[in-house]
Write a protein that binds this DNA or RNA. Structure first.
Lengths: 344, 344
DNA sequence: CTGAAAGCGCTAACAG
DNA sequence: CTGTTAGCGCTTTCAG
């Protein structure tokens, strides 16, 4: 690690020259400032010739309309903000990416906020963005309902994976996928399964646990539930003994990370997946990139981002859209960590 | 999947009420507008009483300074933009997260741009952000040097993993880590190793290939190089036959994703890692979350983001900083996919 | 079709 | 310490 300095190269990054303004273009083109403005925003109000001329001069000078000044004048910021609890959690990037791309195509810039799972920080981010965006996408918000409603009053906002009545929200419903997973295991011949639980307060975990129990009941399987303190790889690895003690021949884990922890933990006890025990994850964030590749419940993370964005843009264009609750269901992606149980 | 509408709940998200302005606060508090402004930006210029009074009234009314108006007036946007080729590539999120967090702590908001590996789109993003940010962080930029210099003239900019003389840049140098990996393999007793190459035009790949060759020469190992069309899991999986044919007992792969592909590919041929062949990845994006956990070269992604941000903020505060070339070196993270070679 | 004038909400000299 | 006066760069009536 080190610093190198070549003094002779210091021409760059000295002082940024201030951007050309509309006035300069107007002067150079011999037209009024409003004409320049119109050439960019309402060319059809101008003679073809004027437009062409202005645009040419502008290009020469290197003029680019100032986003900020325009926003102040029109009230249209052409910016939105996405706030997530943790960018580094692989569940979120595909969502951000999808929303980003669509926003981009509609001419919007996107601010990204990382609340770090902290409601206070989330609140602060919202406040900071408030004066410069036309809308928010709040993902898995940890903020109190009161505060969320506070912001909704001042700026359009759509929630992802947070179910507040009356607010537009898109929810990824793990139910169907988890249920499918249980059926899949039952078909393979498993009679006793375990669910490794995630955070108690998590909306997703609640959905998943309920789905496992319901499907287990219907298929007459024994269902054991094991909890970890925190849904980490390490924590999951450490509960493997308890998992084994349940006598389950298959385990459904809260997410892919904990599923990998389970696989490692079982291996610590000499058990091989899927030969000795089958494992299924949730969220499908690893694709097939592990070996053996993980059977998992798809998360549709990208779609949720896209959907939230389109709800937001729709609202910005058309106004009131009523109480929107968009539910995305999920399905099982069957790969290599599930198999028939070993005969006793 | 479905839409539910409860008409009775439509109170929300109708029309956003326009935000209170400084004038309203001034009127309510019985002071001039500048005093309100000062209460927020230079409270020390005001009597304690006035400040308290203004702040109280502002809070009551729900006034929050308008970021955009302030920016237009001061020229300080308090925004920066980070542009990456692919948010969904696990190499980038830790970097974005780290930069985001530090920016946040310095009162900056961050725009996120995803160029999708497309220079034209990257250019467009730059242009769109230009009028509303104080600086850029360009990660693994695919843009031509001319264009980058064009933007540098108008706005401070720091590069990550792109080495352009005279521009501030932070580079993650895989050299030391890769070299360490080769030494590690040699110590385990390997005599013949292979490098699975990444994109030809990639700065990182060039570094890595060179380091493997150099260390291999020094340690008197046989080094074979295999290339894939694209550095994907699948592509890596498919070259395993060629890898095996080299007779190498260990392979170093361009990144972690391809390393996992290699492991799967070897397994397709009945070979078990690390019993039959050792594998090491690069970037260390998987932590220990796979089984067996991958030996990899650390990427220091987060640190690169933090460093780039601090260079940028330093520049914004202090001006010209000369030719900065900050190099972060790497090291080997030894885990479970490397072992002694099998005896012939 | 084009220009003049007012103003978006805030800050920053400059007086007092 | 506080009020007054100009703008920041752009859009947008309103006239012509």
């Amino acid at each position: 690690m080190g610093w190198l300095s070549h003094e002779e190269d210091c021409v760059e990054m000295t002082r940024t020259r201030s951007a050309p303004t509309i006035s300069q273009v107007a002067a150079a083109a011999g037209v009024s400032r409003s004409s320049v403005s119109r050439a960019f925003t309402n060319p059809h109000l101008l003679s073809e010739e004027t437009v062409k001329n202005v645009l040419r001069i502008a290009d020469e000078i290197g003029y680019v309309p100032n986003h900020t000044a325009r926003a102040l004048s029109t009230g249209r910021y052409a910016n939105i903000a996405i706030i997530v609890p943790d960018i580094a959690n692989p569940f979120f990037p595909p969502m951000i990416k999808a929303a980003q791309e669509d926003a981009d195509n509609s001419g919007f810039c996107v601010f990204l906020g990382n609340s770090n799972e902290d409601p206070a920080r989330e609140d602060q981010l919202l406040a900071r963005f408030l004066g410069q965006v036309e809308g928010f996408i709040l993902v898995s918000s940890r903020l109190g309902e009161q505060r969320i409603r506070h912001y909704v009053e001042r700026c359009p906002l759509v929630l992802i994976n947070r179910d507040i009545k009356g607010l537009p929200r898109v929810l990824i419903d793990s139910g169907p996928g988890v249920s499918e997973a249980v059926h899949h295991l039952a078909e393979l011949g498993h009679k006793s399964i375990a669910y490794l639980s995630g955070p108690k307060r998590s909306w997703s975990n609640t959905q998943r646990l309920a789905a496992v129990k319901k499907a287990g009941r219907e298929l007459d399987l024994k269902v054991s539930v094991i909890s970890t303190t925190t849904p980490s790889y390490q924590a999951a690895r450490e509960v493997s003994a308890r998992l084994i003690n349940t006598g389950a021949t298959a385990v459904i884990s809260f997410d892919d990370l904990t599923a990998q922890g389970v696989i490692a933990g079982l291996s610590d006890h000499g058990l091989v997946v899927p030969r000795d025990i089958s494992v299924v994850g949730c969220d499908d964030v690893l694709d097939a990139a592990t070996h053996p590749s993980l059977t998992s419940v798809s998360s549709r993370s990208a779609e949720s981002g896209r959907t939230a964005l389109s709800i937001l843009l729709d609202f910005l264009r058309k106004g009131n859209t009523g109480d929107i609750r968009f539910s995305l269901d999920t399905r099982l992606v069957s790969r290599e960590t599930t198999a028939r149980p070993r005969l006793p």
